[in-house]
Design a protein around this nucleic acid. Structure first.
Length: 639
RNA sequence: GCUCCUGUAGUUCAAUGGAUAGAAUAGAGGUUUCCUAAACCUUUGAUCCGGGUUCGAUUCCCGGCGGGAGUACCA
């Protein structure tokens, strides 16, 4: 924000001049003034007391006087309360800022160039044996939003997905399909492929449990302890043995197994694509574990030769991380097959070859914090430039009222079901309100319901700090009122409605509406600055709604909030916290609604005030659209 | 046991070490001949406990207590 920056510089100069001390800009703390005091920005003077060697009030007075004298075009006046210097910014500054916002569609975002750092973000990363559930939804929405936020902070972003397409889990589904599938396909059943495969995964588990239980009962009857019986049953279960054999065949490249594997995976991918499309997420580059796990093995062998790792007598390969305060970590099993960590190393190798990565971000649940701590150290040892500083964007679990979601126990909230329900609810809700949109077509109503339903779902998830576990109660549907996505979308739709009306009105009576001004560049500045400067004689007594010339306190507060957008984007980027943007958008919409309720816009008779308010409306709509866009949330023209 | 994360109104969430801890929802009450009432206004209600650091602590440090996760030749 320009105003804040100029003030900061002036304060640094003031300290230099008054107390002869050079201070870093970071010492200048300027907060938004609390609404019970007069002022826009408040300087906290406590940090300067040691230099001034005076009481807080006296210090604040001195700095305030300096600012009024040396920066009169910005600082209109000030007041002091204890150690807080409340600064009133000149109207002209706010008016100019409004024009600045309107002149740049991308306002608040940093541009990306070829020289920008390259950030790779891995997210989604599904297993191919079951459909996506609410936990994946959180991952996908966070990953997408984080990518947008990193872009908005001036980074080139590559979005990537590592698909876990091989392993025992997919063999279980394959086996179950062979045994009980009767040749079913997505076409023959009309089921999405990922759901069909998921059903077989569950079927396998059901049969396996029954089988295991029967074996256990036999062993216990033979006199084994329950624990020993369970262990033996798991080892000797014919179903599980078959699944393991299938995995071995897969690794050996058995044509029949590979062919089935490919067919079933293709069903799953078609299903995933549909879900990804509904969520509005996508990827620039997709990796498959079936293509990376061998690379990982090679990389581990390489590390073994360099003496970074060691081999035990049974043939397994380990990394000793006790020097780093961690344990020893398995990298290759005694039979030479790879583990999770091996695959991540292999994936890293391929990515390293494909892109000049400056920073790598993994969007993965917090249950894997330890894994990424280890991965970072291993990649660093293996010579990956970005390994040491890799970011594990660790997010919390989505919990249900009765605990965690468990695929096998069927206590999951299915992504497709949830999406369908949100859109259906939005459609249902809009039925009561369509009377005001009487010319609407069914297709348009469907599209609005999609935007609003998805908006509710996305905002519900993204407004929460990603690190925290969050609760989802399927009994209570996600809200459309209050602090929600639709609230913000509604605010946007209302503004758009006003701007449309003003366009119609403008062509009719040629009133000075900025919303329809064909050349945004020539609008505003003169009009607003003139209007505002004529009013500088007027004094505000701080009463909330009293106008200061053209700009009321409420309008200035709105502009000030708009001005803070860039800072929110930066904070979201440096903290890797997209919820900052969600909360910003809510606060802005909330503030606008108050303004909308109390102030006439189209009905305002003073042409210049009307133009200014329309411009303010347009700026709010613009920032809401940009901010929500960073979250991957669309905004409707009507709703 | 050890490591990490986390404890804020009844509930779901906010608060770069700053002024009287904000919202939403639920509860109570109000607002529509007027630009979209998915809105607006009023009201009830909270920092787990004990120390420490300092002008100032929900925030940082130490110790408890509660919740979650990890500590697999699973991914």
């Amino acid at each position: 924000m320009q105003i804040k920056q100029r003030l900061t510089e002036a304060v640094v100069a003031a300290i230099e001049q008054l107390y002869g001390q050079a201070i870093p800009a970071s010492m200048v703390q300027l907060d938004t003034t609390r609404k019970e005091f007069e002022g826009h920005l408040t300087l906290v003077v406590f940090p300067f007391l040691k230099m001034s060697r005076q009481r807080p009030e006296a210090t604040a007075e001195q700095i305030g006087t300096y600012l009024v004298e040396n920066l009169p075009e910005v600082v209109a006046r000030y007041n002091v309360i204890k150690g807080f210097l409340n600064i009133v910014i000149a109207d002209t500054c706010w008016a100019a800022l409004l024009d600045e916002i309107r002149s740049d569609e991308q306002w608040g975002l940093k541009p990306v160039t070829d020289a920008s750092p390259l950030v790779m973000i891995e997210y989604s990363s599904p297993n191919t044996n079951k459909p996506l559930h609410l936990g994946h939804v959180r991952n996908n929405l966070l990953g997408w939003a984080l990518a947008r936020v990193m872009e908005a902070n001036g980074n080139r972003v590559v979005k990537t997905n590592i698909v876990n397409d091989r392993g025992i889990h997919i063999c279980k589904s394959m086996l179950a399909w062979l045994k009980w599938g009767n040749g079913e396909t997505p076409e023959s059943t009309g089921k999405k492929g990922d759901h069909l495969i998921g059903d077989y995964y569950v079927a396998f588990d059901r049969h396996y449990r029954a089988e295991r239980q029967a074996l256990m009962d036999t062993y216990i009857a033979e006199g084994m302890t329950e624990e020993a019986a369970k262990e033996r049953a798991e080892r000797e279960s014919p179903l599980m043995q078959e699944a393991r054999q299938m995995l071995v065949k897969w690794e050996q490249g058995d044509a029949e197994v590979r062919s089935l594997w490919q067919t079933m995976n293709s069903w799953v991918y078609a299903g995933f694509d549909e879900t990804y499309r509904a969520l509005g997420v996508g990827f620039d580059k997709i990796y498959y574990e079936s293509q990376t796990y061998l690379e990982g093995k090679a990389k581990v062998e390489e590390g073994l030769e360099k003496g970074l790792f060691y081999r035990r007598e049974d043939g397994s390969v380990w990394a000793d991380l006790t020097a780093e305060g961690l344990d020893e970590k398995l990298l290759l099993r005694s039979d030479g097959t790879s583990v999770y960590m091996t695959q991540d190393i292999g994936t890293a190798k391929l990515r390293y070859e494909d892109y000049p990565i400056d920073k790598m971000i993994y969007v993965v649940g917090n249950e894997q914090n330890y894994h990424f701590q280890v991965l970072s150290i291993l990649l660093d040892k293996l010579g990956f430039r970005w390994g040491k500083d890799l970011v594990h964007f660790s997010y919390g679990m989505v919990e249900l009222p009765n605990g965690k979601m468990k695929s096998r126990e069927g206590t999951v909230v299915d992504a497709d079901d949830l999406i369908a329900k949100m859109v259906a609810d939005a459609r249902e809700l809009s039925r009561d309100k369509v009377n005001r949109l009487d010319d609407i077509t069914d297709a348009e109503a469907d599209e609005i319901a999609r935007i609003v339903g998805m908006g509710a779902l996305k905002y519900f998830i993204l407004k929460v700090d990603a690190r925290k576990n969050m609760l989802f109660n399927p009994e209570e549907s996600i809200d459309f009122n209050g602090n929600t996505g639709p609230f913000i979308q509604y605010t946007y739709a209302r503004i758009r409605s006003i701007l449309r009306k003003s366009e119609q009105g403008c062509t009719a009576d040629a009133s000075p509406s900025l919303a329809t001004d064909p050349s945004p560049k020539e609008k505003g500045v003169d009009t607003f600055v003139d209007a505002a400067s004529q009013s500088t004689g007027a004094q505000s007594d701080g009463a909330a709604s009293q106008s200061v010339g053209m700009l009321s306190a409420v309008e200035i507060a709105l502009i000030q909030q708009l001005a803070a957008f860039g800072a929110s984007v930066r904070k979201a980027g440096t903290d890797y916290n997209v919820s900052v943007i969600a909360n910003y958008c809510y606060d802005l919409a909330k503030a606008f609604n108050g303004f909308y309720h109390d102030f006439p816009i189209l009905r305002e008779e003073d042409g210049r005030k009307r133009a200014l308010r329309l411009s303010l409306c347009a700026a709010v709509a613009q920032v809401i659209r940009t901010g929500m866009g960073l979250l991957g949330i669309e905004v409707p023209e009507r709703m």
